[in-house]
Design a binder for these strands. Structure first.
Lengths: 234, 234
DNA sequence: AAAAATAAATGTTTATTTGACACTAATTAT
DNA sequence: ATAATTAGTGTCAAATAAACATTTATTTTT
């Protein structure tokens, strides 16, 4: 028995905005699309939701298929469904944004997949409304990260304070006073100092830290502000 | 020419979580569903996206049709698309939350439509996953309102400080120190004192204020915090 | 080997904001 | 007149933020 009038022929798609951090700036992972229309153009990772599949499951499956990435932080972000956002069919796309530590997956990505990182400031022309999707994801990321310490998802197990600072600077496109930032971060108890130092990026070397997972889980729903109050403006 | 394999038969729906504020507590607007399945059960305002219609346009149309409401603040919130969230068809629903001033639309709602306000704390059993939708909308509202002064959308043109305080208390389910709250709000420059007083709700009467729309537009994208730092926890 | 350069880490000081609390003011009910 | 109620203003100590200075560890240069 059919309950609803089936007057639509809508395809449900997923697009993933994958944010990565290379230690200096924020990047997004793009792929050369391998099917029509717009084959061979740059696009977000995307695919269709199968008939027996939940959107979130589809997002993880697509991410896995196209990049080999698993167990990454991912969050639903927004839906794009203008009638003519794609030329030939009515495709409604649910966007997810993912946060990944680029180091951790470096080998996976470079070896087997046709994905490429681009600076968030400067990526190639994308198909359809994928620019808007990125903008929406960025907005959402900024909002979420203003309240919850999710940006740690973008960092390796071991990270340095200058790295986190650079990350926040990249996400909000601001310049932080590293001294005040560092003090605030340390006093939060969110990170634990290790003995080892990172000698790659400076002469003196910077101590590695790791997340205090106990506090992280507690604070993930709390109201830590690492940002100066003006940083969400415009 | 068909570009994509059409192996899905997905219906795209909209559900609206309509928040209202009655001066004391937060409420949501529910409706007795007038079609199968689940006819006559309480549900969110919902409907289907037409084949030539953008989701946002559909949301406004549905809101208008079911409640007569127009020009209200509305924001996309999240998508529910589990394969079996409805029994007979695969319906993917995009949720929007709306903020309305209940006074302003009181006559519209009571006269012509079968919608009813319920306290957010205590509403009837709803169909499908509408409970989850409300929870998601509430979370989103809290997050957004922690950063931007959108809660003013829930208030009439003229409002009193005790009203705003009650509103914040309702949204976050907390108790505020009215004195500190008031000081912070006044110093923001966001509200302008009027001469008139509201004598309805107290013996002494409370001064009315109106929004400073100039500052409101500026601050809508800024980082005002009216909340104590612990209020987003759990 | 000493000096300069670099970036990390820690320290200092002042202004601002917060949070906790007390009081005064305007009105109505008794 | 007095009590009761809620609005609105005031005070103060503690915490936080913002601005700025110095020290430390290391490498590079001379």
């Amino acid at each position: 028995m059919e309950y609803y009038k089936k007057d639509s022929d809508i395809l449900l798609a997923i697009d993933c905005i994958i944010f990565g951090f290379n230690g200096e700036s924020l990047e997004i992972l793009l792929i050369k699309r391998d099917f029509e229309p717009e084959r061979n153009k740059w696009s977000l990772m995307g695919g269709f939701v199968q008939s027996d599949e939940a959107p979130e499951a589809a997002a993880y499956r697509i991410l896995k298929q196209l990049t080999g990435l698993e167990n990454v932080y991912m969050e639903q972000c927004s839906v794009f469904g203008e009638p003519n956002r794609e030329p030939n069919d009515r495709v409604v796309s649910i966007c997810y944004f993912a946060l990944i530590d680029t180091q951790k997956y470096k080998h996976i990505l470079s070896d087997n997949y046709e994905a490429k990182w681009f600076p968030l400031q400067q990526y190639p022309k994308l198909i359809f409304d994928h620019d808007q999707m990125i903008a929406a994801a960025q907005y959402r990321l900024r909002m979420k990260a203003a309240l919850y310490p999710i940006l740690f998802e973008l960092l390796p197990e071991k990270f340095t304070i200058p790295q986190i600072a650079a990350l926040y600077e990249g996400v909000y496109n601001i310049e932080l006073d590293k001294r005040n930032f560092s003090r605030k971060l340390l006093s939060s108890g969110l990170i634990i100092k290790l003995q080892e130092k990172d000698k790659e990026n400076s002469k003196k070397g910077a101590y590695y830290f790791k997340l205090n997972t106990a506090i992280y889980k507690e604070k993930i729903m709390s109201f830590l502000r690492y940002l100066p109050s003006w940083s969400l403006e415009t």
